[in-house]
Design a protein around this nucleic acid. Structure first.
Lengths: 213, 213
DNA sequence: CCAGTTACGCTACGACCCGTAGCGAAAGCT
DNA sequence: AGCTTTCGCTACGGGTCGTAGCGTAACTGG
């Protein structure tokens, strides 16, 4: 059972090592094929040809199309960062624009949605997506919240359980809105849209911090 | 019910009519196959067998897997309604729970996400999804907004263009959050979550109605 | 009632992709 | 050296695709 990337503990000490260049070439070829062909017409044989490796090499490292595309798309999210822009509103606008820019790329659109669809029937695949894509986004929410608390823009940890609930909710609202705008409505995430969205979200959060009416 | 086939003006008056029962059987079989097999392992030959029709009959009515699944999934959204619950908050909570209940069904999860992934490379498919799924949801937002204006909970049409922008934003936030919660995080939309979400959204909207600071 | 028209079920077909097995050669380690 | 693992290549059975062809069924207008 190939785990995709071998865990470093089980790395064999003897024998010919796996080519790291082949890994990179395969993932790049997968992204290129996603752009040109989309998910449904992407074949592993074609990816192998593009990458300049044999089809069998590909099957030795990835269990199938799903796992390969997850790894190929996950690399796109490496560039996600959260530069400190001075205010919570500016931080949110910045990360939303970054996230939207990644989702706007054709390989992210078709690849990510397709593996998410498959993950509804494959727990291992969903876990792989969560670890390599979703959690990385969620960390930005946590970091942004922490900074806002330092600045005094948000109240510090009230109750741990309600805090976790709020973080989950914010994550669903931010990522969900961008995903819906980009992938369902297929309309661009403009600075105007981001501005309106951030305004509604922050007003709602600051108001929700007060005790419920 | 979207037939997706001939417009009524081009309906042939002569010859054997198409079996409406076959349409229903095929769509039901498609949903059943989505539940059992998911998107990737669903084959048109299998659907035809389940529906008790010949494979050629299926190809005479739908261009391919994508179009068939769109029609099969779109039928799930027929039951979406917006009963008047007396307040904007209650209306939103009601429609969000309905929407989440539909998305929680396995045939909606795998089917809808998969065709959305394909629609990123197929304009005709995206248009088909928009007409039979997305617009139907968007109408609920417009209707809910109208009721809230009648009740005085929201200010009446200020500027047509900003009003349209706001409706789009609300739609992205509501549908996006539910989709993200259900399909990306794979966690249930509980009444608690809906309550928290509605609170943040409404506070943000009521605050956003005032001139920007 | 009978021709005309269209839909249907069935079979068969070439084309393509899948995922695996087997082989010899290459690239590392001890 | 000798051992171990990876690599490229070829070949294969199995499955799905989408279409063509044929005879039959259903409905319509004369």
């Amino acid at each position: 059972m190939v785990t995709g990337m071998q865990s470093r503990t089980s790395a064999p000490r003897t024998g010919r090592p796996r080519s790291a260049a082949a890994d990179a070439a395969i993932l790049a070829a997968t992204r290129a094929a996603l752009v040109e062909l989309g998910w449904s017409k992407l074949t592993l044989g074609d990816v192998a040809t593009r990458a300049g490796v044999a089809k069998t090499t590909l099957y030795r490292r990835w269990a199938g199309k799903n796992e390969l595309v997850v790894d190929a798309v996950a690399a796109l999210f490496d560039e996600l960062e959260l530069p400190d822009r001075g205010s919570l509103a500016a931080d949110i606008e910045g990360v939303v624009l970054q996230f939207a820019a990644i989702l706007a790329r054709p390989e992210a659109k078709s690849g990510l949605m397709a593996v998410l669809a498959e993950s509804t029937r494959d727990d291992a695949l969903r876990e792989r997506i969560r670890a390599s894509v979703v959690d990385r986004q969620k960390r930005l929410v946590l970091e942004g919240r922490r900074r806002a608390q330092v600045r005094g823009e948000l109240p510090p940890e009230s109750d741990p359980s309600t805090a976790a609930r709020t973080v989950d909710l914010i994550f669903d609202m931010v990522a969900g809105a961008v995903v819906h705008r980009t992938l369902v409505c297929a309309e661009p995430v403009t600075p105007t849209w981001v501005h309106d969205f951030t305004r509604v979200l922050l007003l709602g959060l600051s108001g929700a911090a007060t005790p419920e009416s």
